[in-house]
Design a protein around this nucleic acid. Structure first.
Lengths: 329, 329
DNA sequence: CTGAAAGCGCTTACAG
DNA sequence: CTGAAAGCGCTTACAG
């Protein structure tokens, strides 16, 4: 492999000068600069990033920790992050916890040993060990999806999105509204969306029955199962609408309803959250909330760079969303 | 940051010994090893990968070059790759060409400067500059999706998958079969699948009319547009089935057909390829081909490690597929 | 079984 | 405007 020494020899200068020419740091005469650049060009020389990073403590790499890569939300967000970062000369080192939240901490340490300049975490939970690991790492850090105390967080407006959705159903005349949520361990999806649903029902003077409520695990199958459970448990008091906190679970619910001969939305209205690519092409098309995940990724990339470059960055960013009204209600 | 020198001092040994203990290389007395490990444990010391990589020319990082991250195929394959690699102590450095094939070459060089131990390319095209760049890099390399001459390639059996699909439609009694393909610049998707369709039709003595054929660009919208074009151009000679070479284009085609009041499959059968997660939940559910992309990713990871470790690896791997018969035919 | 020393490929004060 | 030298944090012959 050709190194800076080879270039220096060929250009008949010191490697100090080559380094300066390459990085536009300090003076280099136009003459010499050209000579160097020509040789760099010809040889296809690329400086060793390991050496550079060992010396400068910067790697040009940003770590991303995901709960699951092959999920639409993740891949959109990562795509947005990468989009912004690649334009600024950064690459992404990818890391997937496969929903094992202990791994988040392992990965923070691992990413640190790889000298990443910053870390973006698609957060699913919050606990003290995680917070401590983040602080101990001393690495510029960004959380997406959960508000982590003391850490710059991009948070979806889960509360208002969910209450808007509930209100919309009520406006449409629904009084018995079922709900398929997820574990409370997920503060954003499990708690906020559920709280918004309950608060809104209460505010409108509508009852919330236990047998209208199910808890899934984000999967399509769990949406199916929970819908089945709700129907079975609420004989004679069946809801006329159901709010699933993710599109995937909504799709599972619809699947079961169709099997049982329910017409949607006539017999049962269904809504989700996430605006998955397919939501538009389902029959009926799914009413949902778009969180603009690509944009969120871009913004995360941009904010992380600001942090890396020591710019002041606020602690909390509330993201926007958009209700997409379609045929499932 | 704590370094190997700190550990050495604390354990009252040389850093040589610490290194040996950490890497299980050479002799270290049980006594000393324990002392070292305890301190490593306490301090949370992680060796600097930059230093290590500078010294050993290995980074424990594998580069992945994608045409587009936020696509189901990509994210599944990457998920499979990462799954295998993470288990073996490797991380993925992600790179997205955004369908600009020139960037493939740039990224190969960039990944090289980052000392990746190997590269996996989700290939979309093949040209001499690319092949040269791969060879010049001297890095263990793997192609997925296209057969690159001289380079280890995992290839889908596009020809047989497409001819199976065509045959299946013919079996069902269809004689006029439309086709929505993509550019010939993509040898696998653009050429093989199209050739299989035409060969099969011919073999069965069925005509292939130009106005039954459209060329999309992988997007749902292009499926919609091409279906519209085919219908318009084949007045009085409308096909009874249409074969879209990807699920997304099939979905677009279905969308247009539904708008026009076509019943599927009664008035028009539709098939795709890809087994996207949603294909099962469309109405009607989509007949398609599953390429087992997660498994492909795992296999790619495994083969790349073999190459990195200088094991003999064959040049070409033909992947399996599975026809999924559903309600759209 | 252990350590001193060299060296991987860079950058950056420092000196001129 | 340019260069010699030190040093980033590791590993690995080599010697004992």
């Amino acid at each position: 492999m050709t190194t800076i020494n080879d270039i220096a020899k060929m250009a008949e200068v010191s490697r100090t000068t080559v380094s300066r020419a390459l990085n536009n740091s300090g003076y280099v005469s136009e003459d010499v600069r050209k000579r160097i650049m020509k040789i760099v060009e010809e040889t296809g020389y690329m400086p060793s990033q390991s050496a550079k990073s060992l010396r400068t403590k910067r790697s040009g790499v940003v770590g991303v920790i995901l709960p699951r890569l092959s999920t639409e939300t993740s891949s959109r967000v990562v795509s947005g992050i990468n989009d912004f970062l690649a334009k600024n000369g950064y690459q992404i080192l990818l890391t997937d916890t496969e929903l094992d939240s202990d791994k988040e901490i392992d990965y923070i340490r691992l990413l640190k040993s790889r000298h990443v300049d910053g870390i973006i975490l698609l957060a699913t939970n919050v606990n003290d060990r995680l917070l401590k690991a983040i602080h101990d790492s001393g690495i510029p850090f960004l959380s997406i999806g959960q508000e982590l105390p003391g850490i710059t967080s991009l948070v979806y407006d889960d509360y208002h999105a969910a209450s808007d959705l509930t209100n919309m159903l009520i406006h449409k005349g629904h009084e018995k509204i079922g709900f398929i949520g997820v574990t409370k361990e997920d503060p954003a999806v499990g708690q906020l969306r559920s709280k918004a649903y309950k608060d809104t029902m209460e505010k409108r003077g509508l009852p919330v029955k236990d047998h209208w409520i199910g808890e899934g695990d984000f999967s399509i199958e769990s949406g199916y199962e929970q819908m089945k459970r709700i129907l079975k448990n609420s004989q004679g008091d069946v809801p006329t609408a159901v709010f699933a906190v993710t599109d995937r679970m909504a799709i599972g619910a619809i699947e079961y309803l169709k099997e049982q001969g329910y017409r949607i939305p006539e017999d049962m209205a269904v809504v989700g959250i996430g605006a998955s690519a397919m939501s538009k092409y389902l029959t009926p098309s799914l009413t949902t909330v778009d969180y603009f995940n690509e944009d969120v990724g871009q913004k995360a990339g941009s904010l992380l760079l600001d942090k890396i470059n020591n710019k002041k960055v606020e602690k909390k960013f509330e993201l926007t969303y958009r209700l997409i009204l379609r045929d499932s209600v």
